[in-house]
């Protein structure tokens, strides 16, 4: 995944600058030689100065990352092998006991399963629906840009605001969702959608789908614009139907966008916290606890910092395993055949 993201970003920007600089290769080639010579002349006395400049430019970002990202992560690993309630020094070394406690805790293993359900469910719902909407919107329509904007609205709301609104809509009996379905003759669950353990996780999934579908649509639409229109024209002249064109041309060419979107969606689902915390707080009966909500409540409510740290290390390892296997089994397809397609463009950059 790591090189892919970087490559694709560079691909994006190179195509972006193509407009401003139509023929960079032919122009830069002769001048580059000159610049190397000029640099060599300046190099020796300027070497120290150059290094100082590099240090000056890079160190603020690196220091910030070291202090606020690396250090806490190292600390998380350190805390995870101690029994520590937040008072006094770290003395009660317990080895891997915290890990065993976390992994034997049914609340945590269920939380892992909930995260997996959210990952799978999000992709299973948003991929077909998002793709359907994107394909429908990808045609000349007067109101297209308005529709895009509207679909984007839930995404720009914070999870908290979306969660608070949905919490009210989903109130048992007098919430608007129950009112509407009761007019259709369906009785909402007595404990409410979020209060029934069997339904709560699926309700959270539905709200998440509402919130993040817009992102999928917007990204898919952007990907669709990268499909050259000559392909459609050629296929149409050959007598292909609309559906055939979508299935044989559009969707395969959208592959890289879909796969990378899937990666983002997966990483987001793994870290799911805000929406769950607002809608259910992890309940009822821990039926919606996620790994993140587990570690936050262990850490802040019970002050079990060692256990919380072990849970966060496990969360990271799970994320890493999923990310690497996604890279291996899904994204790999992009970096191989796609290289041939993108290489000539990348050379320009």
């Amino acid at each position: 995944m790591i090189p892919t993201v970087a490559q694709e970003v560079s691909f994006v920007s190179s195509s972006r600058t193509d407009d401003a600089d139509p023929n960079p290769v032919s122009v830069t080639q002769p001048t580059r030689i000159k610049s190397v010579k000029a640099k060599e002349r300046r190099r020796k006395p300027a070497d120290k100065r150059k290094n100082l400049e590099i240090l000056f430019f890079i160190s603020p970002a690196l220091i910030l990352i070291a202090v606020f990202m690396l250090l806490p992560i190292i600390q998380a690993v350190r805390f995870s092998v101690y029994n520590w309630k937040g008072f006094g020094p770290l003395v009660d070394f317990v080895g891997l006991k915290n890990y065993a406690r976390v992994l034997q805790n049914e609340v945590f293993t269920d939380a892992m399963i909930h995260n997996l359900i959210i990952i799978g469910g999000s992709i299973a719902l948003q991929l077909p629906i998002g793709l359907g909407i994107a394909l429908l919107l990808n045609r000349k329509m007067k109101i297209q840009s308005l529709l895009r904007t509207i679909i984007f609205v839930p995404y720009v709301l914070s999870e908290v605001i979306a969660g608070v609104i949905w919490f009210q809509l989903l109130q048992p009996q007098y919430g608007v969702v129950d009112t509407i379905i009761s007019k259709l003759g369906i009785q909402g669950p007595a404990q409410g959608w979020l209060g029934t353990p069997e339904l709560a996780l699926w309700t959270v999934l539905a709200v998440l789908t509402w919130k993040y579908l817009g992102l999928a649509v917007i990204l898919f639409l952007a990907g669709l614009q990268g499909v050259p229109s000559e392909l459609y024209e050629a296929a149409q002249i050959d007598g292909a139907s609309w559906w055939q064109i979508q299935r044989k041309i559009t969707i395969p060419l959208l592959g890289p966008t879909l796969r990378t979107w899937g990666f983002l969606s997966m990483i987001g689902s793994l870290q799911l916290f805000d929406m769950v915390w607002i809608l259910t707080g992890g309940g009822p009966a821990n039926s919606t606890t996620t790994m993140a909500s587990f570690l936050v409540s262990e850490g802040t409510k019970r002050q079990n910092f060692g256990v919380a740290a072990a849970a966060s290390v496990i969360l990271f390892v799970v994320a890493l395993i999923l990310a690497v296997s996604y890279q291996q089994f899904v994204l790999k397809r992009d970096s191989q055949p796609d290289d041939e397609r993108t290489k000539p463009k990348k050379v320009k950059a």
Binding site: A6, L62, P72, I73, G86, S312, A319
Partner: peptide, 23 residues
């Protein structure tokens, strides 16, 4: 050094949240 930044993409704030809070 660029790889340091790329790897940083992999670390969600959630993982570091408890030590970050204490620090």
């Amino acid at each position: 050094i660029f790889m340091v930044f790329v790897l940083g993409l992999l670390f969600p704030a959630t993982v570091a949240i408890v030590p970050l809070f204490i620090m």
